[in-house]
Amino acid sequence: MSEKEESPKKKSRREFLQDVGIVGVGSILAGSAIFAGINYDKKKKLGDRIKVLTAENELLEIDKNDATKVGKFKSQDLTFLQKQGREGIPGKRWVMVIDLSKCRNARKCMNACQGAHHLRPEQHHINVLKMQESKNTPPYYMPKPCQHCDNPPCVAVCPVDATFKRPDGIVLIDNERCIGCRFCIAACPYSARVFNWTEPLLNEDDKDKTYNVELNVPQRKGTVSKCLFSADRLRDGKLPYCVSACPNGVYYFGDENEDAVTNGTTKETVRLKKLLEENAGYRLMPELGTQPRVYYLPAKGKSYPFQDADKPEAEEHI
C-alpha cells in the first residue's frame, strides 16, 4: 500500500535520473569503453581527442576512434522537450473511460497525480467530486481530470500559444511560454486548470531539472498547470499515473484509433466502442460542444456505498 502511494513521485524522479543521467551519458561512456576494449588491437592510428562529460560531471578526454555514438544526449535539452511535447505520439488518439460505478473515493489517483506533478494539496489535476443531480437520484463519486476536448475552449483563448492541442489529442501547457493571464481558467467549463499562485511545492528540489512539457515539472510560479494525460508515461507505453494508481478498476485508458482501452487496475484490455455501448457511456456537458476525450460510464450498480459523511457536500450542488 505504502509503496503504491509513494511510488509515482519516487519513480518519476528515479526514471528521470535513469533516463537523463545513466541512459544518456552513462551509455555513451559504457559504449565507448566496450568499443575501446574490443577494438584496442584493431586500431590503426590515433584520431582526434574529444571531450566527454560523464554522469558524475567529470570531463574526460578520450580518443575519437574509441567513442561510439549511442544516441543523442537529448533529455536535457529544453528545446527538444518542447518540440517533442508539441509533436505528441503520431498515429494516436488518446481516450479515457471512467467507470463511475467502481469509484469509492479512494483518492489514490489524486495522490499519485499530485506526487508525479509536484502539486500542492489544493491543486488538483484530477479531482474526485461528490455529485448528485437531484434529490431523488443517488449521489456518486466522479473523478474529473482535464477532458482534453477536441474543441478546446481554453486553447482557443490563449494569446501566446502556450496551451495547445497535439495531434494525439492531448491538450498541454508550455509553462516556459505561459504569461499567466488565466484566460484559459476562465474559459474552461470543467474547472480543470490550476494556477501556481505561489512558488511551487518542490521548487528547491527541482531547480536543476530541465522543464519537461509532458510532465509539467518543474512547475513554475505564475503559470497555469493541468492534467496532461501523463504524456510522459504514454511515451514509454505506460498508463497514466492516476490510471495505474487506482485500486478499484475505475479507469480505462487507450487509443481510439486502436478501438481499445486498458483498465489500470486489472490491466484487462477491452474494445472502446463495446465498453461504451454496453455501459451507456457518455461525456460531460455535451451541450457545450467541447467534444471531450474523456468518457464516463454511469454509476449503475455501484460496487461501493456512497459515504454518509459525503452526502451534504454532494447535495450542495443540486
Binding site: 488518439r93 478546446p152 482557443a156 495547445f164 497535439r166
Partner: peptide, 17 residues
Amino acid sequence: PTDKPALNEQRAIWNTL
C-alpha cells in the same frame, strides 16, 4: 487499415496561428 488524420490538422479557432 487505420490512418486517421491528426486531431489538430484542421483550421480552427483553437488551433495555432
